[in-house]
Structures are given as structure tokens and as C-alpha cells.
Amino acid sequence: MRFYCTDDTVDLEQYPYHVRDVHISDPFILADPKSRCYYTYVQFADTERFPDVETDKEHGVFYVLESKDLIHWSKPQICFRQNNFWADKDYWAPEVHIWKGRYYLFSSFRADGHYRKCQCLVSDSPKGPFEPIRQEAVTPDGWQSLDGTLYVDRSGKPWMVFCHEWLQVGDGQICAIPMSDDLGEAIGDPVILFRASDGKWNAKGAKEGGYVTDGPFLHRLPGGKLIMLWSSFTEKGAYAVGYATSRFGDILGPWDQESEPLYALDGGHAMLFYTFGGQLMMACHCPNDHPKKRILLFEMEEDKNGLHVVNEVTGNWFHAAGGPAKGWVYKQPCVEIPSFAKDPRG
């Protein structure tokens, strides 16, 4: 018996933004146990749909969206404003993690003439306002970095896992660096965990050459295996999600790559979370064409050996899948009511 997310199950004044309309890149979904709400974060607002939304053209900003059911979302609300912060560009791939009772926003940032770097902002609420912990980045000086995420090791110590960009090094890297307890600075040297060319399913991602790494995300399977989702491009040019497994179950690996991607129909930069109903979900964006990017939500199956897709619930793939499926998609968007195997409201 599936749960159907119909419009009459929600307050459409509070949650007017349907998942099929949410323009988003690199979606990260926080299931907040305190508010029993879901939150996702964007660096731009749909001002055509919401002309009254607050904007700030003078500063870099992040917006937050809230949902009760993963389908109906609130209008964008500013949760971070640059003010005296050092960076005003490349506010990419924001994700929020709960650490020791507070909310930490990981993202990349850049200013004119500077490399892109990753660091953290902090708030006492998932809605912000977020503030910088430091002005200095966590990722190393002299490195062009992006897509920082949190990993907590078996001893309870935090790490930032991030990408060292292919534009600087040719063969993109997934790296990790140990962090201070307040997540404000690095307390050790970076470690290269693997390179994009180690993948078995990905290909050079640009006409000029170069192997791309995007969007690392760590997850421990029920049997204890540690896996890492990451994204790149297939030989057919589609953006895709694959994963690697740590041979000894912790961040330093070594990392063994799966031979086939989880999803290769022009969707990527994925993460995993559990709904309030206990269902493991994967979120990513599709297609990899910025004006058309929307959330895909997959019901997932996990066991001690691996991870598998069960079903995609938003319908956003229906007309936007790419790669080998490009010739099979429909011209019109899906109009079926989204449904879940388990009620996401819990």
C-alpha cells in the first residue's frame, strides 16, 4: 500500500513549491529530528514564481526550503548572507549536517583572483541564520577544491571529504582532511583517497581531456561496510552516480570501485538519507543542464554487500533523463501523483 502525496494533504500556502518545479543543483536533504521537517539548500531563488522573495544582489546568499513530505516545499528564505565574509562567488553544493547539537553548512566559496575553497558555517537552527566559523577555509591553501562533506570516523573524529578539482590536477581527486572539533579548521594534512581514473565506469569528462570527480558522500551499510557515493561522466557523456567501498571500513581505504554506476541517465551529485518513515532515499539532480535541474528522489535498498535503486518517486526523470535513455523520454512532464512505499512524514 503506497502513500500518495496529494495537494490536499498539505498546507499549500506554507508549502507551495512542488518538487517538479524546484530548480536546484546538487540537492542535499536534511531530515531534522527536532522539527520533523526536511530541509534543502539552494544558492538561487525562483523570483519568477516567488516575486516577493527576499533577494540580495550585493552579497552572496544561501536559501533554505522546508518540507513535511519531500514533495511540497516552502518558498525560498535566506539563511546565510555574505556581509563581511571573504567570498562572494561559487556558493556551490550546500549541505547541512547536525554535529553536537548544532547545524553546520558545508559548501564551496570563491572570490575574484582566489581558488575555490571549502569551509563551514554554523547555526542553532536548520533555517539559519548561518555564520562563518572562521574566515579561513578548511581545504588546503593552493588547492582548487569543491563539494566538501562531513565524515565522522569510528573514534568520533570529524573529517572533511572533498574534491580536488580536475581543472587544476587533470585527474580529479577525492581527498579527506581531519578537522577541529568545532569544524572550523584543518588539523592535519590532506590525504588523496582515490582519483577519478580509478573508476571503472567513468570517462574523460571534457573535450580537452581530464577526469572529473564530483559530490562525495559517505554512508555505512547495515553490515558495517563504508561506501562513498561520487559522480563523474560515462563514456556516453551522461552525468552519473557510482560508489566505492572502503576495504577496511574507514576513511583511509583503500577504496574499491564498483564496476557499474548506480544511475547513469544524466543525474548526479547524490546523497543518502532516511525518511521519518525509515526508508533509505537517494537524492540527486537531473538533468545536468543548469536551467533544467530538478530533484530526483530514489527509494533505495541496502544490505551488507551493497546499495541498489528500488524506485524513483518524483517523476522528474520522465522527460529529462539523458545518456542512453535520451531517445526514450517523453516530451511532456509527468503528471502522476508522487507516491512512496512508506509515508515520509513518519
Rank of each mutant, 00 (worst) to 15 (best):
V96G: 08
Q119S: 11
R49S: 09
I29N: 10
V64I: 07
G128H: 02
H18I: 04
F44Q: 13
V64E: 09
V19E: 01
Q77I: 11
D56E: 13
E66H: 06
Y104M: 06
W92I: 05
L121V: 05
S25H: 15
H97S: 12
R36H: 14
Y38Q: 09
C118F: 03
R81M: 07
G113F: 10
C120F: 04
H18S: 06
S35D: 10
P16M: 04
F106D: 09
I24P: 01
C37A: 12
E131R: 14
D26C: 10
N83C: 13
C120L: 11
V22P: 00
D69R: 09
T55F: 08
P126S: 02
Y104K: 02
F50D: 07
E95A: 13
V64S: 12
P27A: 06
E66G: 00
W99E: 02
C120P: 06
E95K: 13
D52H: 11
F85V: 07
A111G: 13
Y104D: 08
L70N: 10
I71V: 15
I71R: 02
R110D: 07
H97D: 13
A31L: 06
S125L: 03
S67C: 09
S67M: 07
V61L: 11
W86F: 15
R49E: 03
P51M: 05
F106R: 10
F130W: 08
K57D: 15
P27T: 05
E95G: 15
L65S: 01
R102Q: 15
D26Y: 05
Y38T: 03
P129R: 01
Q14Y: 03
Y103V: 01
K127A: 11
Q119P: 00
D21E: 15
S35P: 01
K57P: 10
S67N: 05
R116F: 00
G60C: 05
V19N: 03
Q14I: 04
D90F: 14
V61P: 11
Y15V: 06
P51Y: 10
V19F: 03
T40E: 08
L65E: 12
F130L: 01
Y41H: 02
F28D: 12
V64G: 06
K68F: 06
D21R: 14
W99Q: 06
S67F: 04
H114W: 10
D26V: 00
D52S: 12
R49I: 00
E66Q: 14
V61Q: 08
K75V: 01
K127H: 04
F50L: 08
L121D: 00
P27N: 09
K100W: 00
H72T: 02
S107R: 07
Y63E: 07
Q82P: 09
A93P: 05
W99Y: 15
I29W: 11
L70I: 06
D88F: 12
L30N: 02
S25V: 11
D124I: 00
E66Y: 09
C37K: 15
F130Y: 15
D32N: 04
Q77D: 12
S25E: 13
V22R: 05
H114C: 14
H97V: 09
P76V: 05
Y39K: 08
L65T: 04
Q43Y: 15
Q43F: 15
E48H: 12
S25C: 14
Q119C: 11
Y17K: 01
Y63G: 08
R110W: 00
C37T: 10
P51L: 07
W92A: 09
E95F: 00
T55V: 14
V42H: 13
